[in-house]
Simulated scan of single mutants.
Amino acid sequence: MQTLVIASRKGGAGKTTLSRSIGVMAEISGAGPVALIDTDEQAGLAMWWNARESQTPVFASVTIDNLKSHLEGLRNAGVKLVVIDTPPGLNSESTATLEAVLPNADLVLIPVRPSPDDLRSVGATIQLVEQAKKRWSLLLTVQLIEQVFPVR
């Protein structure tokens, strides 16, 4: 089983969108079964999953305290990929969550938008990931100009 953590200290970087998109596409491409875990208190990934009709990828409701045992249970159930959505923020609670999740990661994807605010904040995420000695990759996320400025 591979565990992919989507992390960024910056809100609005696209973590939840990326988490659900990777989960769905992994299932469609035959890389599943896939489990999604939402550690963000905003629960955007959980709300999206609850509004869906499809039961795949599966949603694993966990707390940070039982994350390791739940991951072992998912492995024993035959899950091949776990995608973990993490909270934004520099406060102690979100930092503690990220520090608890990172040791379980096989890879950390760090979404970053091409904006000064995102680029300034990415260093804090990279620092935590490197302290955990985990492999990471930046993922540049962009929004199409037509979506921002509709052509009329």
Results as ranks from 00 to 15, higher is better:
residue 1 M to W: 06
residue 116 P to A: 15
residue 81 L to V: 08
residue 124 A to E: 06
residue 73 G to W: 06
residue 142 V to R: 00
residue 61 S to F: 08
residue 4 L to E: 01
residue 121 S to A: 15
residue 82 V to I: 12
residue 50 N to Y: 06
residue 55 Q to M: 07
residue 44 G to K: 04
residue 81 L to E: 05
residue 150 P to I: 03
residue 20 R to W: 07
residue 107 L to P: 00
residue 80 K to P: 05
residue 22 I to Y: 07
residue 85 D to W: 01
residue 8 S to E: 04
residue 133 K to S: 09
residue 129 V to I: 15
residue 58 V to I: 13
residue 13 A to W: 00
residue 2 Q to R: 12
residue 135 R to G: 08
residue 76 N to L: 12
residue 151 V to L: 15
residue 96 A to E: 11
residue 58 V to F: 06
residue 27 E to C: 02
residue 126 I to H: 09
residue 60 A to I: 03
residue 124 A to K: 12
residue 150 P to T: 01
residue 61 S to Q: 14
residue 84 I to G: 01
residue 118 D to T: 03
residue 8 S to A: 15
residue 146 E to R: 13
residue 18 L to D: 02
residue 98 L to Q: 09
residue 93 E to S: 12
residue 64 I to D: 04
residue 120 R to D: 14
residue 7 A to Y: 05
residue 134 K to L: 09
residue 21 S to L: 04
residue 35 A to C: 02
residue 96 A to Y: 07
residue 23 G to T: 09
residue 74 L to N: 08
residue 112 V to Q: 08
residue 148 V to S: 05
residue 27 E to N: 02
residue 37 I to H: 09
residue 134 K to W: 04
residue 19 S to I: 00
residue 103 P to E: 04
residue 124 A to R: 11
residue 108 V to F: 00
residue 112 V to I: 14
residue 41 E to C: 06
residue 58 V to A: 15
residue 17 T to S: 04
residue 60 A to Y: 01
residue 61 S to T: 12
residue 66 N to D: 15
residue 134 K to C: 05
